[in-house]
Design a binder for these strands. Sequence first.
DNA 1: AATCCTTTGAAGGGA
DNA 2: TCCCTTCAAAGGATT
Length: 372
Amino acid sequence: MPQLNSGGGDDLGANDEMIAFKDEGEQDEKIQENAFTERDLADLKSSLVNESEISQNSHPPVVRTGQQEEQRVYEDKHREHLEHLDDVTKPQDGGMYKASPYSGYPFLMLPDPYHPNGQVSPSANKVAVVQQPHGMHPLTSLLPYSNEHFNPSTSHLTSDMSQKTGVHRHQPHDLTSFYSLPSGGVGQITSSMGWQSQPVYPLSSCGFRQPYSSSLTSNSSYSRFSHSLIMGPSGMHPTGIPHPAIVPSSGRQEQFDIKPHPESKRDRESKKPVIKKPLNAFMLYMKEMRAKVIAECTLKESAAINQILGRRWHALTREEQAKYYELARKERQLHMQLYPSWSARDNYGKKKRRKRDKQQQDSATDNSLDCS
DNA sequence: AATCCTTTGAAGGGA
DNA sequence: TCCCTTCAAAGGATT
């Protein structure tokens, strides 16, 4: 069980996450890893025969002008919105949040305060945080997990009891303030503001898919989520903000179809939305950095991209990793508060995996990555 | 259509 | 306490 009550507030459960650093601490090792990370792209590409054939004539130039323009428009559009974020940004986070460079997705970005020489890399040191409507917590991405918990009148949020463990879960913050949305907030949330989907990076210029078009109307965007947990009487969550953590068990969000069609009771039950696991630090890092890797190395295969990201993750400094651990900790914290009875075990068996020889896989992996 | 691949970290269960 | 398994995201590849 996470140590939720270790320090109260945002200090909850921080220590355990830092344990992961112990094996990666040496600074010289970091330098070496940083050195080979420059080569990892070429290494992986060379290992991918098909990819290398495609990209042998150097990397195609990444067209960013459109993206930058969208970014500028987005920032202008939401400048006023962001001005209100100071109200909900905690002191230790002060000054860390700023507008996301990703257009069409309302990230708050965490510029890296630890970057050497004060240099800020284009995107490597920014952490995507879902932007919230006025008066909402930066981690609002996890708030509307369920209608019940999102209801401002749900007073039990401040202190909930886990139905399974009986562990008393204290609220580090007055979450009711986070849940409270401005009246009419549903209609005020534009498609460009809403985080109705997974984080989407504007990578159309480099061929990365954009599963959710920014041109979608609010209704069309929200229509991906239609379960009673998140939908109001009109087929929408009372807040109008569905969350990516809730997806129909029948498939991915983008595959979800709310069209009413005859279904058996069994089918309906089988399509109950699944409360997904909160993302860990590395997953958050991957979500942010995937687009950058794709743009840099023109790779699309996630397995190869994840290999690169895994190595880059290890190349990060402790401070850089700490940002993601902190975000992940807050995500878990909110997830636990919103779903006290949820267990990671609940989703076991949702994926049917084939058994494979792990040792054989490991040896193969070692060989393929032996390029440093 | 379903699953695999590939990464790290969290969580849970069994020994 | 340790070890193992599963899942979380992603999308092309494979079955």
